[in-house]
């Protein structure tokens, strides 16, 4: 594969999943909250666990964003190190 194409696929692979993972986290948190409210506590605690689950879901979504940033930073660091090694040789 040529350089530009490789870069393109790499970028797609690294950042193409960001939106989907973010949304999935929120939906999962929300679904967990609803499940706790309706099935475990039979609707007695009605809106509260839903809200808490939603909040945790949103927080988890942002955490996945931070993960992406961390992976990108590690990538950059590795590339810089390789560049340095190439210069030293």
């Amino acid at each position: 594969m040529s350089g530009v194409k490789k870069e393109f696929v790499h970028l797609l692979a690294n950042y193409g999943h960001v939106g989907f993972t973010f949304a999935t986290s929120i939906v999962l948190g929300f679904a967990g909250g609803v499940l706790l409210d309706q099935k475990v506590f039979n609707g007695k605690t009605a809106p509260w666990f839903t809200f808490i689950g939603l909040a945790f879901g949103i927080a988890a979504g942002y955490k996945t964003l931070l993960d992406v940033v961390r992976v990108a930073q590690a990538d950059e660091k590795r590339q810089a190190r390789e560049e340095q090694e190439r210069h030293e040789r």
Partner: peptide
């Protein structure tokens, strides 16, 4: 938070 974001990996 960690558990949710880990489970989200399966779905996503």
């Amino acid at each position: 938070i960690e558990v949710i974001s880990n489970l989200a990996r399966i779905i996503s």
